[in-house]
């Protein structure tokens, strides 16, 4: 694809996403789309660490939580506006990301997995018990809704455009990073730590950078959820939440940009479409994850080329049919 075509496609997609909720989509679905958007940001974030650099992390929900609490507490206790709290809370999450990145220099694989699980458990317990700051088990209430002048983002539709903006930012940043020396370095670390190092990649620096980027995106998503739900509880940011984000990443296809998006959007909307399964949905979902990892370890994304070929064939057949008619 040439530069022009790519630009045209991008403009088309953005326009479509901007207009879409205006044409008869109920507020309930817009709420789902907003959640999907927030999960896209989380999953794209986790993608830096797990998908690109190959460092396992069970802590994405913690960065989500750290960002959410930081943003909520900043606006509530210091009175800064949401617009300042959003980047600040992402930076707070980033600092914790760097901290969690440090063990990845010493241990790998299963050890790193358990360290990240431990980290997230400790974060959850601190959020839950540090009453003076986090309001403890009561949770944080009455988090202010973002405003622009006198315009309040107090409906799902209005919030949709805020989420969409941050999602586009996340996608944009991800694309730029993937196609740069930084993306190549991260990818190299996933394939072979040693080879990457010998090819001149400062693997220590880039591993920490991967964790920092993951955390930064997690923080952004956290700030968005805090001011959307206006209520927070530490227990929402638990191990299963991290596991859910990991599943989104791998079901979509890790390491790419389209994979995390497919995974996050798909797994947020799927329960709605599969409502008839009721209580069985999650159990079937669990089995689905196991089967999918067995048959399609690169995720749903690996179907895209096949799908493209199929569509192409459909078109050429049609053309041929048209031609033979003449």
């Amino acid at each position: 694809m040439g530069r022009r075509t790519r630009c045209a496609v991008a403009v088309g997609v953005v326009t479509l996403l901007a207009v879409f909720p205006l044409v008869g989509v109920g507020p309930y679905y817009i709420r789902l789309l907003n959640l999907a958007g927030i999960y896209v940001i989380l999953t794209l974030g986790l993608n830096f660490c797990v998908g690109m650099a190959g460092q396992i992390s069970y802590a994405q929900a913690s960065f989500f939580g750290i960002g959410a609490y930081a943003s909520a507490l900043l606006t509530l206790k210091t009175g800064v506006s949401f617009w300042a709290a959003l980047p600040l809370s992402a930076l707070v999450a980033l600092v914790f990301g760097v901290l969690l990145g440090l063990p990845s220099l010493k241990v790998g694989r299963y050890y790193l997995a358990i360290v990240t699980i431990g980290f997230s458990e400790i974060v959850r317990l601190v959020l839950l018990n540090w009453k003076e700051v986090t309001y403890g088990a009561e949770g944080v209430k009455n988090i202010p809704v973002p405003t622009i002048g006198t315009f309040t983002l107090n409906t799902d539709l209005r919030y949709y455009y805020l989420v969409l903006t941050i999602v586009l930012f996340a996608v944009f940043v991800s694309i730029r990073i993937v196609h740069s020396r930084i993306g190549r370095a991260l990818h190299a670390i996933r394939m072979s730590d040693l080879a990457a190092e010998v090819m001149g990649v400062n693997t220590r620096y880039y591993k920490i950078l991967a964790f920092a980027l993951s955390a930064f995106f997690g923080g952004l998503a956290g700030s968005l959820i805090a001011h959307y739900d206006t209520y927070l509880h530490a227990n929402s940011f638990n191990f299963m939440e991290s596991a859910k984000i990991l599943c989104m990443l791998f079901i979509g296809g890790s390491g790419s940009i389209e994979g995390p998006i497919i995974g996050a959007v798909g797994l947020t909307l799927l329960p709605e479409w599969l409502r008839f399964l009721k209580d069985y949905y999650m159990a079937i979902y669990g089995v689905g994850v196991v089967l999918l990892m067995g048959v399609m370890p690169s995720g749903i994304r690996s179907l895209i080329p096949q799908l493209a070929r199929f569509v192409q064939r459909l078109f050429t057949n049609k053309q041929r049919a048209v031609r033979s008619e003449h």
Binding site: I182, R184, A185, H187
Partner: peptide, 26 residues
Amino acid sequence: FAGATVLENVMIARHCRTKYGLLEAI
């Protein structure tokens, strides 16, 4: 880097001869 293309393998090796940082990349 067995999963990457031949060209990508060599491109990764140019890492230390390039300098631009994260912000510039974005």
